[in-house]
């Protein structure tokens, strides 16, 4: 079934050249880094294989194109277990975003819908570690997390009300890897958002509930001064896979951990 969808998508890809262009990806070299969430007690570093990541978040225009081939993900057709009532509620119709939103990141999408979109491109959502690894880069350094100025710049996004309109994608400077909009625009779904924090079989991460309230979170998380990342984790842990949010979007990744 999934293969069939992929084939369908490939068949229509020529028509979507413009959209495809915007989902240009960049190769992220593999490496090791220290996550705020240690992979296991006593283990500090996380190793990542090289992978490709979308340079920009997925736009409303791109998501509309996806819905043409997979209309079961339209807001008027989607199964209730895959999305809440806010799903794509900012669109002018079930199939069409408002014109001014076309080049803005798509938001109000559930984890299920984001995953389906990426799969339709033969891709997947990035894992938390992949996202955190790339987002650790400042505009000039591979790891800018210790730079107070960079940290403050990221934090400033949270000092703005969420009522403002979102910017179009690509409006923030490229980071060290050439990736844009990781900070200061939207939250982003990751592949293991639910498994990471809410309910997981992965015992290595310890008590899956630790992040659900900060008193405990503060005991287990590293880099306690890295507020921007802590807030990402808090946000992701508050979301169930069917939830959507007015500032919650995504981008896709390929390759990496399982060679997909």
């Amino acid at each position: 079934m999934r293969k069939l969808m992929l084939a369908l998508l490939l068949a229509t890809s020529a028509a979507n050249a413009a959209a495809a262009e915007q989902s240009a990806t960049t190769v992220i070299p593999g490496g090791k880094f220290e996550s705020v969430l240690p992979p296991a007690p006593g283990v500090k570093e996380v190793s990542l294989k090289p992978f490709q990541l979308d340079r920009r978040p997925v736009t409303n225009a791109q998501f509309a194109t996806f819905l043409k081939t997979q209309p079961q993900w339209r807001r008027d057709k989607i199964a209730h277990i895959f999305a809440d009532d806010q799903y794509l509620s900012h669109w002018q119709s079930p199939a069409e975003p408002r014109k001014e939103d076309l080049q803005r990141p798509v938001v109000n999408v559930s984890w299920f819908a984001a995953t389906a979109y990426c799969e339709s491109r033969g891709a997947r959502l990035p894992t938390w570690y992949e996202w955190e690894y790339v987002a650790a880069a400042s505009n000039t350094a591979r790891d800018g997390r210790d730079d107070p100025a960079w940290r403050q710049q990221i934090l400033n996004w949270y000092s703005r009300s969420g009522r403002d309109a979102l910017p179009t994608v690509g409006s923030t400077p490229a980071n060290f890897y050439g990736i844009q909009d990781l900070h200061g625009v939207i939250w982003e779904w990751v592949e293991d958002a639910s498994g990471m924090l809410v309910s997981s079989d992965n015992r290595e991460q310890g008590d899956p509930n630790v992040m659900r309230f900060c008193g405990e979170g503060a005991l287990t998380m590293e880099q306690k001064e890295n507020y921007a990342t802590l807030m990402r984790i808090a946000m992701l842990s508050s979301m169930k896979a069917r939830y959507t949010g007015g500032a919650m979007g995504f981008r896709c990744a390929t390759g990496g951990r399982d060679g997909k």
């Binding site: 806010q86 969420g162 659900r212 309230f213 946000m235 939830y243 959507t244 949010g245 500032a247």
Partner: peptide, 11 residues
């Protein structure tokens, strides 16, 4: 009540 009231935006 903290854990029981953890609430995402729009929920």
């Amino acid at each position: 009540g903290a854990a029981s009231s953890f609430t995402a935006p729009g929920h």
